[in-house]
Amino acid sequence: METFYIVGMIIAGLFFGWTIGSHYTGAVMGTAYGAKIFDIRTATLIMAVCALLGATLQSHEVIKTVGAGIIPIEYLTPFRAMIMMLNAALVTAVNTWLKLPISTAQLACFSIVGVGLAIDAPIAWGKTMLPLAITWVGTPLVGCLLGFIFTKTVGAVKKAEKIKRAVLILACCYASFTLGANNSGLAVSVLYGSGTVKSLLLAGFIGGVVVAIGALTWGRPLLEKVGLHIVQLEINSAIGAQFGQATTAYIAALLGYPTSMNQAIVGAIGGAGLARGVKYIQLKVVKEIVINWFVSLIVSGFTAYFLYKIFSWLLGAK
């Protein structure tokens, strides 16, 4: 039966990773695609490669935090890990279907918390959850600040459009690398925590592969659907915002705290707008982020809790 749970955990985790890749394609490549720098194939291919690199090399801290830092690893049986990933995958699928905004970082962490509560495991509220909460609240704020600073800087440099376009490509590569470093670990964290995959490098690589596949399969048509003139952002703001987003999430990844690339870019674009005197972000979007924080947390926590109770009763497993 244990093999069954391990297989279930892997499948659900990989599905979750795949949705992460598609979910964030717009956030890391949208500005360059909107500026008509890349065609869709090149954009997603570059993204896939950079994300894979980021995941393999720099997602280790995030994997450790999520996989081993929220509840002690001795509580993480394959069955429980399977429920956590199944919950993350299901909530993502349902939210995508209902078109409700979600943050994959909060979703993954609270899937673990939900199961943790159901099994009476000690949850590292102070040591892990508090810094995570600070990261999540701080993400759009730091993104805004950095977006402002970078856009001001880029705007002050008088360089040819061609050079600025090259810089924007660089910014998008950095953002894709960061996506790998910051978010792909979520999909494989419990694989590491439960001891199924023992090497951090291998876990990171697996996470990177599924995120890359997500970008290439589902992310690509979604980005294409957005079309060329839906997102209109001048190049200085695009560069500043993308660097602002990438730096914010990259710092979080180095500290070991996963966060939302979407919320980082919302903040960063807001900051870019402040720097350029343009109102890119409506107040409504800010409200949505705040709602999103709570929806992601509460919904995933609850569903994980009950999913564990139900399956544990049905299958008699722990």
């Binding site: 956030a27 949208g30 078109k99 980005l223 659907k225 957005v226 079309g227 209109q232 870019i265 919302v266």
Partner: peptide, 17 residues
């Protein structure tokens, strides 16, 4: 104006006017 595209752009944190 494709409502799904608008939704995805907004969800990705991109500005839509």
């Amino acid at each position: 104006i494709d409502e799904e595209a608008i939704y995805y752009a907004k969800e990705s944190g991109l500005p839509v006017d």
